[in-house]
Amino acid sequence: MAQPDSTTTAMGEGEGRKHPDGTTRRDFLYLASAAFAGTGAALTGWAFIHSMNPAADVLALASTEVNLQPIAPGQAITVTWRGKPVFVRHRTAEEIAKAKADDSAALPDPQPDSRRVQREQWLVLLGVCTHLGCVPLGQKPADSKGDYGGWFCPCHGSHYDTSGRIRRGPAPRNLEVPTYSFVNDSNIRIG
């Protein structure tokens, strides 16, 4: 048996003789067509995959406005923003002092308290543990606030301090501070 017959018939006369091993089937035309078709398929595939990214209405989602007036010192509220909980805590003087004092402590994710707040008494955080996305405890008066007086994630035992910084446990980073701005003294807009 000499070779698969398909090659002998598929080949042009001359080419077929030059490369009797049948590899000339992958000639330029063949490759060009395949590459062209492949590119088209990949681009179409991209359009499909991109359709799973956040849509225009999701991206344009209205920002959330929060009224700070009813929150007494030492209290915290949870609001929803982009489908996730946002913690707004009215910190007491001791909590602020503690947070500042710990700026120099050994922090897994070092960041001074001043970089995490716009006005000292108001701490605004994304209430999502940076470990695996659970919502930490510490918002309600009865909740465990962890060993550092901030938040405690019950899923895998991460402790956060009064600045929302990670102090102990598996979480790699501090609780995230969302973009927000003070509309006036008693209102903030998150997002």
Binding site: F48, H50, S51, N53, A55
Partner: peptide, 8 residues
């Protein structure tokens, strides 16, 4: 609103 939604 969906990216390329009209196309799909």
């Amino acid at each position: 609103d969906v990216n390329y939604g009209w196309l799909i």
